[in-house]
């Protein structure tokens, strides 16, 4: 039973990681940018949500306000800072590390260096197969699934989604076909940032809100993206769930720290045999 509980817990973290990693892979796939600041957008989501809870006393408002603020932040960042680096992954890493430092130091200056906690906004336990599970975590799973469903509908069922996927497959050809690539670029970056900030908002009540909280998450997200196959949406989603669930199960008989070590070992083994990731065509 403990194993199942931890498997479930892993799966929920997997959904949060999927939100973040999908943004990362979208940004890489469409823009050719390795976004080292992605974890910091996750942090921004959590920090803004902390302020919303403190001042407006309503956690759920964060799920509306934070994505809007994320768009306002992402659009100028893409247009004025990142555009010259698009298509140059190595130099984009340097640029985004710079952005990451700026965001972290701004958060340190404004929010402070003390980790803070958001009170559980949904303090209800849910019984499932005879075990109690914190209701908020189940809600996180639900919200993540709905968000991911919307993302899927957007990318696969709308014409703009098709433009994004076309640009992911071949940017030059997409441009030659008359697709307004600039519009695609700015929207993709905004979608990626919005996903990361939603991840931050959802994770805030089950973790600690801290200006360096993005560092761990961005590492795990990169592992997911690399194992899943750089730029593969399906691969990223499946890997995020699988990796976190496996880590959860391993945590039932190992310490969580040892489980994380095994995850890294797993990554090394997979990359030895499949250097471009499992789902890369």
């Amino acid at each position: 039973m403990d194993g199942f509980f931890l498997f479930l817990n892993g799966l929920i973290w997997g959904l949060i990681i999927a939100l973040i990693a999908l943004g990362l892979t979208l940004i890489f796939g469409v823009m050719g940018i390795v976004n080292m600041a992605h974890g910091d957008f996750y942090m921004i989501g959590a920090v803004i949500s902390y302020y919303i809870v403190s001042y407006l006393n309503n956690f759920w408002l964060s799920l509306i306000i934070v994505p809007l603020l994320a768009i306002l932040l992402a659009a100028p960042l893409e247009r004025f800072v990142l555009r010259p680096y698009e298509g140059f992954p190595s130099s984009s890493m340097i640029a985004t590390v710079g952005i990451s430092f700026i965001i972290q130091q701004l958060a340190l200056a404004v929010y402070g260096g003390i980790p803070k906690k958001i009170v559980n906004p949904f303090p209800l336990d849910i019984s499932m197969f005879g075990i109690y599970y914190p209701g908020y975590r189940m809600l996180v799973a639900l919200i993540s699934i709905v968000t991911l469903l919307f993302l899927w509908l957007f990318l696969y069922k709308t014409s703009f989604g098709i433009l994004i996927r076309a640009s992911m497959q071949d940017r030059e050809m997409a441009n030659a076909m008359g697709i307004n690539v600039n519009r695609v670029l700015i929207s993709t970056f905004a979608i990626g940032v919005v996903l990361a900030t939603i991840g931050g908002v959802l994770a805030a009540p089950i973790t600690q809100v801290f200006y360096l909280m993005g560092n761990d998450i961005v590492l795990l997200s990169f592992i997911v993206v690399v194992i899943g196959g750089l730029g593969s949406l399906k691969g990223t989603f499946i890997t995020a769930l699988a990796l976190c669930a496996i880590e959860g199960v391993m945590a039932s008989f190992l310490s969580p720290t040892q489980a994380r070590v095994l995850t890294f070992l797993l990554m090394i083994v997979i990359l030895m045999f499949k250097p471009s990731g499992i789902f890369k065509d």
Partner: peptide
């Protein structure tokens, strides 16, 4: 039980 400083989610350490 030992838990790393700054851990947000303690459930994996406590459960079981």
């Amino acid at each position: 039980i030992r838990v790393p400083l700054g851990t947000g989610d303690w459930i994996p350490y406590l459960k079981g």
